[in-house]
């Protein structure tokens, strides 16, 4: 059976440590980016960590929204995660407001700055963070796979890093490595293919379903990164 985000969610909900760690490490930055952007002003910033925790608990909750979404065969995960984050944020804001009124002295009780409620902007922030997270994960998948495949594969990952991370031309890399330019070009193309494969794998994990959906999301992801 394919491993998808849903199987990880299920595993996390059942208390499997690996799944919990994988899920939180993958989506933690996305959730944080959204919440920090939403609460960039005001006293709610200090509640970001608690809210992230709440988001993941809501995801893993038996009968929670994500599990229900899966059971109703709705496959796209990103909008659901966004929905959960948004709901938790709103709930935190409401609870904080009430608590301030109830417990704090009145003067400071109303000091909660209004969250930046521009949902379009927040949605873009979420999407960018989401895209960055998937790319990060892709790099990790490719590196992991290269490690298993051997030194040549790891060298191809390094080739990509030099080309895109340090901005060297393939010619300069061949020169630095003392390798044949044509062969280096060939390795570079192979490395690109491997990256693409890893990216699609990551996308499939997060978008279990039809390939059309993956392609569409890939296109969107690339647009987001490129734009």
């Amino acid at each position: 059976m394919d491993v998808t985000c849903w199987t990880v969610i299920r595993g996390a909900a059942d208390g499997r440590d690996d799944d919990i760690a994988r899920f939180v490490q993958a989506y933690g930055p996305v959730v944080r980016a959204y919440l920090e952007s939403r609460w960039r002003r005001g006293s709610l910033r200090e509640h970001v960590d608690d809210a992230i925790q709440e988001v993941f608990l809501a995801c893993f909750d038996e009968g929670g929204v994500l599990v229900r979404a899966q059971s109703s065969r709705v496959q796209a995960f990103r909008p659901f995660l966004l929905g959960v984050v948004r709901n938790i944020a709103r709930r935190t804001e409401a609870a904080q407001r009430k608590r301030a009124e109830r417990e704090a002295d009145v003067e400071s009780g109303f000091d909660i700055a209004d969250p930046d409620g521009d949902e379009k902007r927040l949605s873009r922030v979420f999407d960018r963070a989401w895209a960055a997270s998937l790319i990060r994960e892709t790099v990790g998948v490719q590196a992991e796979r290269a490690k298993r495949m051997g030194a040549d594969a790891e060298r191809r990952v390094e080739l990509l890093r030099l080309r895109f991370g340090e901005g060297l031309k393939v010619r300069d890399i061949a020169e630095r490595w003392g390798t044949d330019l044509k062969a280096t070009h060939h390795e570079f193309e192979r490395a690109r293919g491997e990256f693409r494969t890893a990216l699609i794998e990551v996308m499939r994990f997060h978008y279990p379903g039809e390939s059309r959906s993956v392609d569409k999301e890939l296109e969107r992801l690339m647009e987001l990164i490129a734009g």
Partner: peptide, 24 residues
């Protein structure tokens, strides 16, 4: 576009990846 994605992927970053161990 794929190149743009890879540039984003391999872009050097001063900030280390965030550790979510505590939240985990």
């Amino acid at each position: 576009t794929l190149d743009a994605v890879m540039r984003a992927a391999f872009e050097p970053s001063d900030t280390p990846p965030e550790n979510f161990d505590r939240i985990v």
